[in-house]
């Protein structure tokens, strides 16, 4: 997936747990849990959803690296499998 597609995946996952949020109003550089008033269960649901859509494994210690929208997209872009058998 390219950057835009990953961006859309994250937005979709976020609006699933916070349906009242206007995607256009999300500040890409502000902490998502504070900004959207979501809790750890919501955030876990977002990450599970993103994992299912992208196949990217997200170890628990990396959760802080997905704290903002920009960070999350950058993390996924760097971590996503690049074709079968080549994800190292």
């Amino acid at each position: 997936m390219n950057e835009q597609e990953l961006h859309d995946v994250v937005i979709r996952a976020l609006t699933e747990v916070a349906p009242d949020v206007d995607p256009a109003a999300i500040d890409p550089q502000t902490d998502l849990t504070d900004q959207l008033d979501i809790d750890s269960i919501d955030f876990l649901n977002v990450l599970v959803n993103v994992h299912e859509q992208t196949g990217v494994e997200i170890p628990e210690r990396d959760y802080p690296k997905l704290a903002t929208l920009d960070d999350a997209v950058a993390y996924l872009l760097a971590a996503q499998p690049r074709g079968a058998g080549t994800d190292a």
């Binding site: 750890s40 269960i41 990450l47 599970v48 299912e52 997200i58 170890p59 628990e60």
Partner: peptide, 17 residues
């Protein structure tokens, strides 16, 4: 919890709650 979650796929990880 941290140790336990290392071996779990994301959908099965536990939260402190």
């Amino acid at each position: 919890l941290a140790e336990e979650n290392l071996n779990r796929p994301i959908a099965e990880r536990l939260l402190p709650s």
